[in-house]
């Protein structure tokens, strides 16, 4: 397709959509009766509900069913796909890696975001300082991965270095290091990218929470002689606890689904694959529907309790 044709398609779909919506709204608004009310409700609700049923509900149920069938979804295999996930060596490593991601990323991103939020709070360059950490949130994970692949670039120790980290190692007199391909530590170097991206989110939410701590509490504590670290530990942190939990759980969910970073940095090689990447690799590269579906269901099962907890905490934050 040429560029012109693509833009034509763009105009067609938007035009078509708006036209259909306008016609439906105008037509249903004409009818002024009990029937009209029903028609209007249907017009407002049906498109969204239909899309949700077709695009989320039905496929989710199908995936659960397919996770009990073989790679072409033609025969029942019972729990064989799940058994593979928990016995196959490569897949066990995927689970271990996922555990590392989920244990390390939320905690470090939150701690760094919190410390930074406290440090720059009410400083002269607060807005600018926050924008610096926040910026990675706006860019794609593919872009972030490229940025960090460059930081990790490897050259022989004797050669001129182009990666800033290996230059640092060389300047300190160490051998240069293959950050991305040396197992087992490479997973941690990929985790760094996610922390780099998510800390800005933590910082923004927590900074708003810190500013919402009532002044009289801070004042009363100070009159009692509390300051510095103890102010942070006994006043700030307990006051923003609900926000802290929301941040931790939200980052945990995002981390469980991390895909772009692994694919761009290593393509799942060098023992770095994680659950969401393995789902893609099995379902759409190896065309193993059954195993792909089982991995997706596992992801689902892991996400459910965290989301429920997250939503509850979010309500608490809102209720304040």
């Amino acid at each position: 397709m040429s560029t012109g044709e693509k833009f034509l398609q763009l105009l067609i779909v938007i035009g078509l959509f708006l036209a259909v919506m306008a016609v439906v709204l105008v037509l249903t608004s004409r009818v002024r009766s009990r029937v009209g009310e029903i028609l209007q409700t249907t017009a407002f609700l049906l498109p969204a509900v239909l899309l949700l049923a077709l695009g989320l509900l039905y496929p989710a149920i199908r995936t659960v069913i397919e996770s009990f069938r073989d790679r072409t979804s033609s025969e029942w295999v019972g729990l064989a796909n799940y058994e593979a996930i928990f016995t196959d060596d490569a897949l066990l490593q995927v689970l271990r890696n996922t555990a590392i991601w989920v244990l390390v990323t939320p905690v470090l991103a939150t701690v760094i975001g919190l410390v930074y939020a406290v440090l720059v709070d009410r400083a002269r360059f607060e807005r600018f300082a926050k924008a610096l950490m926040f910026m990675p949130m706006a860019i794609s994970l593919v872009g972030a991965s490229l940025i960090w692949r460059f930081v990790y670039s490897y050259r022989e120790t004797d050669a001129a270095q182009i990666g800033v980290l290996n230059q640092l190692l060389k300047s300190l007199g160490f051998e240069t290091y293959r950050f991305i391909s040396t197992e087992p530590w490479n997973t941690l170097f990929l985790v760094v990218v996610m922390i780099w991206v998510q800390a800005g989110f933590a910082m923004t939410i927590l900074s708003a929470a810190i500013k919402a701590v009532p002044d009289d509490i801070v004042e009363a504590a100070r009159l009692d002689g509390v300051s510095g670290w103890r102010m942070f530990r006994y006043i700030t942190v307990p006051s923003i606890r609900p926000s802290l939990i929301v941040v931790l759980t939200t980052i945990t969910i995002a981390t469980l689904k991390v895909f772009d970073i692994v694919r761009t940095m290593t393509g799942g090689n060098f023992g770095t694959s994680v659950l969401a990447y393995e789902f893609y690799a099995q379902g759409f590269r190896a065309f193993n529907n059954g195993l792909g579906a089982a991995l997706a269901v596992l992801l689902f099962v892991l996400v459910i309790p965290i989301v429920i907890y997250n939503v509850r905490q979010m309500r608490k934050v809102e209720a304040r």
């Binding site: 409700t41 509900l57 039905y58 199908r62 995936t63 969401a276 893609y280 379902g283 689902f300 996400v303």
Partner: peptide
């Protein structure tokens, strides 16, 4: 708008937030 089953339907929509998009992809 008032219609029967409004609250139940809203809760269902709300609950769909927990479905990771990965779960839908193969059948979709």
């Amino acid at each position: 708008m008032k219609f029967p089953g409004r609250n139940a339907l809203f809760v269902a929509v709300f609950a769909l937030q927990i479905v990771p998009i990965q779960v839908t992809m193969i059948p979709l």
